[in-house]
Amino acid sequence: MRELIDTYGVYFLVGQYPNGPLGGLALTLLLSALALLLALPLGLALGLARLSPWRALRWPVSAFVFTVRATPLLMVVFWAYFGLPALTGYKSGQFATMLVALVVFDGAYLAEIVRAGVQGLGRGQMEAARALGLSHLQALRSVILPQALRHMLPSLVNQFVSTIKETSLGYIIGLSEVSFIASQINTQVFTKPAQVYLWLGFSYFVLCFALSRFAYWMQDRGQRRPATATPA
């Protein structure tokens, strides 16, 4: 194990960087972080569009969400890989391709989390806000979302953890993220697959576990003031 880390440790962490493109665990981290940062606002927008009083917005977005949810991520990756170049006219890199696939896929799932979170509040809060003369958007911003986002946190974390693991599908289009690198290491070493893949699994565990602990720490901090109780 020691020898394995000495020889391949740096390669596992950053790929061929700085002599080649960034890869390995660092690339996985970067891809996950960007996917989360872009998918969350997309999911929020899609989720609110699903609840919009305007049909012209609600119907196409609902159709999109249903389509994506009924599709395996692997296929979305293929679409991004083969479909995007046909659509845009130029061949995007593997990283951008994977990022687009993840953002589209997770955006649809996050949209449903947002929708459930908002609907879970019940009609009374929206009615009370509207009865004060606030517009739909004002009511969303100052009354609905501050409460709903808090309720959504566990589901959001779940989805974020999934996103981290989903980056491993980049393997299929030759993106040199950490799973791809690990399998290359395994090919070169040949005799120690158990160690190599244990190492890989442990890396994912650390990332996902750290993220969920961080999220619950944030939630604890937020709950210092009462906010979730509904009137008797």
Binding site: G124, Q125, E127, A128, P146, Q147, A229, T230, P231
Partner: peptide, 11 residues
Amino acid sequence: FVFQQFNLFPH
């Protein structure tokens, strides 16, 4: 407008 269920904003 005052509601039966109060509907105060809990946050």
